[in-house]
Design a protein around this nucleic acid. Structure first.
Lengths: 195, 195
DNA sequence: CAGATTACAGATTTCAAGATCTGTAATCTG
DNA sequence: CAGATTACAGATCTTGAAATCTGTAATCTG
């Protein structure tokens, strides 16, 4: 007897298919073939191909959040250093994902261009972590200002070159780590004085 | 008698053809047709299609520089305000170009993805203007630091979301002007203290 | 009847052909 | 002989028919 067909197993198979064929070529028929079922069976668990693609990407992005969440809530480290470490880890995670899992990253990139709910949630989750670090900095007096959420969004925008998927092509280049360090330094100086 | 075939007239015709068909469909045969000459005549003035495309884009970008150069060298305005005005004008110029001349902007975007010499020069020119403003700020004591070129690059990176062509899709959205104002404010606060 | 399958219509994609394009060379013309 | 044209080979693009895919509905099965 075959294992029960669940949303979970479908998403696992979809990840494999996406990794193998990429977002442009992967079809739900491919997914069904990989599972040894008819494609209509897949539609019992996901209302559409794009919903399936979103669910898979959401899971994939969720795994990345966990690592970063640990850094964001590390109360042992003073907020400025924590912010710097978080931004560097975010960049490292994105670059790592882009190089080791290019097809899933490409899927994510497609969803980002389409303003999907999955990527919106991803951004929201990251902004929430960022706001937490900044709120800690405001509380400790390391940062100046009064709206951690707004400051988080601004810091996120200012570092877009190091996490926005549209910039993947640049992440391979030399001096990118130094460039991020410089932007971090500038941003941290900006956060220290009144906003 | 027909006007002499010069690089200038070829570039003008190419601009029209690019505007009409976009970078994906425009061919040098189209350009030659528009000029009423054979396509081989075009190859007498430009070594390749991509060289022609680059030349046209370089000219187009050059026109944008001129406006900004006036702002960058406006000694009447104190450097912080000048920097803010310059960044806002840069964003406005890019957004305007993207909306009023979408096909030429698309051409520019293609070249940017291909790391062409034309776009590299464009970036260099912008960084030069930016470094000029920052150098003025360092001289006046409004900014702290010792390397205007490095600071210029850092400011440029931090504002990528508002001038990098990969972000066009976002420029239409609401609150983009506010977002830029916030990033400008953060960057300016960062520049004021020692770097 | 929950969960899967087959069947199907309309949209999208593939594929091979022919057409068009790029870039070069040989040729023409004033 | 400067400046253009025609001619051409190989690469790329169009085109339309066949295949495949998406999503739904009707049907089967334990």
């Amino acid at each position: 007897m075959r294992a029960a067909l669940t949303a979970e197993t479908i998403m696992l198979a979809t990840e494999d298919v996406l990794r193998r064929y990429g977002p442009g070529k992967a079809t739900v028929v491919d997914v069904a073939r990989a599972l040894g079922v008819s494609h209509a069976a897949v539609y019992r668990h996901f209302p559409s191909k794009s919903a399936l693609r979103e669910a898979v990407t959401r899971r994939w992005l969720g795994r990345a959040h966990e690592e970063l969440a640990a850094l964001a809530t590390d109360a042992d480290r003073p907020p400025p250093g924590r912010l710097r470490a978080w931004l560097i880890a975010l960049y490292a995670a994105k670059r790592h994902a882009a190089t080791t899992d290019p097809e899933l990253f490409a899927t994510y990139r497609v969803l980002a261009q389409e303003n999907s709910a999955a990527t919106a949630e991803h951004v929201t989750a990251l902004l929430h972590q960022l706001a937490g670090i900044i709120a800690a900095g405001l509380a400790s007096g390391d940062f100046a200002g009064d709206d951690p959420a707004a400051l988080a969004r601004t810091v996120f925008e200012a570092t877009a070159a190091f996490h926005h998927p549209a910039h993947v092509a640049e992440w391979g280049g030399p001096d990118r780590d130094d460039a991020l360090a410089d932007v971090c330094a500038l941003v941290l100086r900006g956060l220290r004085t009144a906003g």
